[in-house]
Design a binder for these strands. Structure first.
Lengths: 66, 66
DNA sequence: ACAAAATGTAAAGTTTGCTTGTCTTTTTGG
DNA sequence: CCAAAAAGACAAGCAAACTTTACATTTTGT
């Protein structure tokens, strides 16, 4: 699964730490998700999407390997 | 977080076991997700949404407690 | 009513998300 | 160029997702 959180952050001009704080997770969690190190829970995905005012499907996308 | 997987299953006339098999998880996992016992990963949410031909946001919804 | 199918539930074990803490590397701005 | 901010990385530990197995309850169809 891939995501474009980094791009959304750029649009909203947020650091990883700021995004993390807004959605209530640690900075390392955002970093790891952006790096594709792990897949977030659906609650996290919904929160991120909500913050960026976009559907979940616009931010997270399945890959062939999923 | 709540979801309407049960309704979508009814629309597509699928049992929990059939849905589970189609998206590659155990039947108990579907049962537990429907029962709100736990929150699925975003990959699972995307797969379920894809199968039901709906955006993730139409199936999964944040609650005040999330 | 009966049998079969579907759903619910529960325990034990593995895997993965997420935390805190710490340190290094890269990017940004004066 | 230099300092500060941001991002990247890694490890240990806890919590939650997910598995398998097994059994009980409810629903469905004839």
């Amino acid at each position: 699964m891939k995501n474009n959180i980094k791009v959304q952050r750029a649009i909203f001009n947020l650091t990883q730490a700021e995004l993390a704080e807004k959605i209530g997770v640690s900075r390392q969690t955002i970093n790891a998700i952006e790096a594709g190190k792990y897949v977030p829970s659906t609650v996290l995905a919904l929160k991120i999407a909500k913050l960026f005012e976009k559907p979940v499907n616009d931010i997270f996308e399945l890959e062939a390997t999923d």
